[in-house]
Write a protein that binds this DNA or RNA. Sequence first.
DNA 1: AGCACGCCGACT
DNA 2: GTCGGCGTGCTC
Length: 821
Amino acid sequence: MSMYAKVIVDVPVKDANRPFDYRIPDSLVDWVEIGSRVGVPFGPRVLQGFVIEIASTTEHPPGRVKDIQEVLDVEPPLLPELVQLGRWMSEHYLCHWVTALQVMLPTALKGKEEILLRASTPLAANPSGDGLSHLTPEERDMIYWLEGRGRAAIDAFLGQFPNAQRTLKALIRQKYIEETRRVVDTLGTKYITYVVSDLSGEDWDRGLAALPLQAKRQREAAEWFRKQGEEQIRLSDLLSELQISRSVVEGLIQKGLVRLEEQEEYRDPYKDRDFERTTSLPLTEPQEMAYRSIVEALNRQEPEAYLLHGITGSGKTEVYLQSIERCLEQGRQAIVLVPEISLTPQMVERFKSRFGDRVAVLHSRLSHGERFDEWRRIYRGEADVAIGARSAVFAPLRRIGLIVIDEEHESSYKQEDHPKYHAREIALQRSQNHGAVVILGSATPSMETYADAQKKKLRLLTLPVRVADRPLPEVKIVDMRQELREGHRSIFSRELTEAVQDRWERGEQSVLFLNRRGYSTFVLCRSCGDTVECPHCDISLTYHQANRSLRCHYCGYAMNEPRECPTCQSDQIRFFGTGTQKVEEELVRRFPGIRVIRMDVDTTSQKGSHEKWLNQFGRRQADVLLGTQMVAKGLDFPYVTLVGVIAADTVLHLPDFRGSERTFQLLTQVAGRAGRHHLPGEVVIQTYSPEHYSIQLAAQQSYDAFFREELALRKQAIYPPYCRLAMIHITHEDLPSIVQLGKRLVDRLNETKPERKVQIFGPVPSPLSRIKDRYRYQCMLKFIDGFPVASWIQQTLDELEDDLKTSKVHISVDIDPQMLM
DNA sequence: AGCACGCCGACT
DNA sequence: GTCGGCGTGCTC
């Protein structure tokens, strides 16, 4: 009786987004499991696929079912739990199943098709070449070339014979050339050769004595090997240590003294670093309470979610560390998610120091190979704490007890391309599967999360004071309009200039923060501080350079680029634009001789440069650290006593209802970098909107007040947490089609929508109205929590299938979008 | 997505 | 007459 496997093939297209049945040949029966990665024939090709189910029957006539060609890994890389999670994701986020599965694996495990060619009639069998006589000389050339090589990749062949695709196809059809297709991994495993010996002491001595007298080098090598007292030594170490060549070792192998063994080597990205072991620190009372509550939940081994709301410097990380310790004691495992940007060496070090080799680190700065190695350590249970950015939530752990999401409000937990998942949601999903505890930690929780805590959907734990009762830094707000009125046009206000000067003289350090995102997109009057807003939407207009207009991307309202401020008629109207480079120049000009480290995408693109700069700053080899987002998070340096925010408004006026929330979070985070140790800290915030509640309340470090204020506004305008959002993006090559199709889609949605559960806005052109020669429209949906939007949208799209298929429209859906652009 | 099949215009 | 354009349809 044959067995069959249901396989999701690597063809992310609607028609292929379903399992295909394959027969499992007898030779592979022991290898094919749920979660296996296999190579399967699909049409004329051989593709990678994932086994999602194994069955003893198939609905298809046996003749129509092909065999699985190969199994690509010794063990199935996807745990059954993740296979199911992938299905849930594909339904919930409206993506192809295979896309959801692939995102869970390191890119090293993405096999691609390889085509090998071979001449089918060896010359030897047909020396006269008669069989080829009716071929053209060119065709014969190809066959001779292939015979000379034995086997060649199709790329090499086409390199040799450009534009020969068609001829090649014909030769394959006529069976002059044989084609083999299979799936190969993009990246192999790294192997290291070790020298080992199985001999007992006596045998060894005997062997050593038997060495010919002239074999000086061999004797030397053998004695050195023995002296090390290790069971195995890296061949490369031995060769370099004794300055001998491989042939010496070959001699010892021949005489049976040693043998070589290939072993898989993990590329440990931290192998050259020593981590000083640390043990638990004493907990403050609030820490202790939070910890105890978490431990109780861990002991219950049931899914439970907590919000750990702790102000900056209150010691959230220590609570994580000790909770993880408890989790490991239970024989369970943990995942720690941190935003990519704060996955700093400092952060990693704290975990490595506490848990040593039991920690595996996954982040984007590792090479594909390194990532794969760390992933495998987790897969094999050699590491039981996985720490990483967003995608680490898929770490292949089998017994998860705890999932920590640090800085849970960070938008980087939402993946911006398919599958557009939110790591927080995936974490909650996995905690259900494992009976695990989830800790969402933040000083500035997202509105949604805090609202959930108030609704008791999450249990709230609070750390209201800093460790060792250190005071929060003093925050000053500088009104940049006033500066201008008094004739100061510099990027630096007088207040900030003085403060920097002061630290410089005292040998203390400053961090200057420039929020680059959003520059040049909004219009601001330097005289009255007003921004130009949409009359219908109460949101800043976006400057569109293409047609020099201001637009609202919620309702589509547009106006021409203004020459004067609509409020005060001043001509001091500006399209904002300042970069870190410009700030650095200004800084050096003002303080000749000051040592500045600039950290932005330009200076940190190189591997390890991030770490290098921070180390330099930590060793006090610079007076000022100037940077974007990346200096806002997680840094903890004792001599930083000043934090300056160059322009606090940038995010505030982005056309996004989360502008105030983002501003508040960012300012609070940045301010938290100052005065974390024995020296008191000071924060200077420069802004054109000093009275704005998000800036005022960030200065007061008053989360609760901000939450209340913002919540009222969200309620009024009906935005999350009072509803949930979905965004439908429509793109097409030409404008008339997209307008027409957009309308048809929205009409259909309106016809089928359940009253009072969904509101539909749009379609309107996206703020980026054309990308890569495709026009973009978007349509926003507000819906009440609990309504199954995804399946409703999918159903509606299916109904329109015929219309949509004939046009070249692309439709993609984003559930709970973070950016409305 | 690819790749084949299939049906219409400019070339040896 | 053929080469080659890309519309349409399918992949267990």
